[in-house]
């Protein structure tokens, strides 16, 4: 087991006052709380900060922790001294933070109280019949075609000695055609079994999409940027456009401008009321890197009489 430097986690000195500790926690919580943070390692960091705060905010736990001494380094192999915990009384076991997330280090120091209060801890994880909620990440293509996805769920539960353990469960789930982000699939009886009555709860799966290299998704609508040549945009004509379920021919109107948005009704996500597919034209220019292309540009320059900066007054 590795020693954890809780003072370091909160970025405070060992003699920091309770109000400094609270301030440091609040600041880090604003930065790393998974509901508000954009940091990639937010969840990990917030757990670390939450665990440190659970110990240091409580004067009894802090005193017990301080008693270990300050010669330990974070990450160092650690075993609690045999007389650990002598003379300390805690008012509560786990704090109100999600104790299931805390480290072995925390468990070994403060776990004894939790054991005594296993019943309490159990109800904290699963208040009566609480349904389970998980996110499932799919591809846009899955929404067009339907798919089967395997999902791994980790459930905290209490082992016979009252410690928190996790067990993994794998579920194969059919993703129906036409789903979009934010929708939910309810799987009856697939939630965690309720600890007291053993009654199974429901599992709610929230659909979300992996980001896609070509498409962007907004609700049921799908957007795609399509490069076109200057002559396709100017003269109009048929082009082939990829869609998540294959490809489709689209007619570009003559004199289309860069960025023009074309709506293909009902070609978005095939929900009951299907979304639309929006094609955004991106005009790209061939490089003037041969004599012929140069000549063609020169000709265009001569005949077009075109000043794109007219509205800027120059």
């Amino acid at each position: 087991m590795q020693y954890k430097d809780y003072y370091n986690s909160l970025g405070v000195k060992r003699d920091a006052s309770q109000s400094d500790i609270k301030k440091a926690y609040q600041r880090l919580a604003r930065k790393y709380h998974p509901d508000v943070s954009k940091e990639t390692d937010a969840e990990e960091r917030f757990k670390e900060v939450g665990e440190a705060y659970a110990v240091l905010k409580d004067p009894e736990k802090r005193a017990a922790y301080d008693q270990l001494g300050n010669q330990w380094k974070s990450g160092e192999q650690f075993r609690p001294p045999p007389d650990w915990n002598d003379g300390f009384e805690y008012s509560g076991g786990f704090s109100d933070t999600d104790a299931a997330a805390f480290s072995d280090f925390f468990e070994s120091l403060f776990g004894a109280q939790a054991n005594a209060r296993a019943e309490d801890a159990a109800t904290r994880f699963h208040p009566h019949g609480q349904d389970t909620h998980a996110k499932i990440v799919i591809n846009l293509e899955d929404a067009y075609n339907g798919a089967t996805r395997t999902l791994t769920l980790r459930h905290p539960h209490l082992d016979p000695s009252g410690k928190v353990a996790f067990h993994e469960r794998h579920l194969n789930v059919n993703i129906p055609k036409g789903v979009y982000a934010g929708q939910h699939i309810r799987l009856k009886g697939q939630g965690d079994a309720e600890l007291r009555s053993g009654q199974p709860a429901d599992l709610y799966l929230e659909i979300s999409f992996e980001s896609h290299s070509i498409y962007t998704i907004k609700g049921k609508d799908v957007y795609v940027d399509i490069p076109v040549t200057p002559w396709e945009a100017a003269l109009g004509g048929q082009i082939t456009v990829p869609i998540p379920s294959g490809k489709i021919k689209v007619t570009v109107p003559a004199n289309s401008t860069h960025g023009r948005l074309m709506r293909l009704k009902g070609r978005g996500i095939p929900a009951k009321l299907p979304g639309d597919l929006f094609v955004r034209l991106q005009i790209v220019l061939p490089a003037a890197n041969t004599a012929e292309v140069r000549e063609a540009y020169e000709n265009l320059k001569r005949v077009a009489d075109f000043n794109p900066r007219k509205q800027l007054g120059v």
Binding site: H170, N172, V173, P176
Partner: peptide, 27 residues
């Protein structure tokens, strides 16, 4: 772990406004 899943589960796709106050609280 139970890797053995005979077949894929099909859930119920929920409609947009579908949950009562009771269901929300229970869940």
């Amino acid at each position: 772990t139970d890797h053995e899943q005979p077949s894929a589960l099909s859930g119920e796709l929920l409609h947009q406004y579908c949950l009562s106050l009771h269901q929300l609280c229970h869940s």
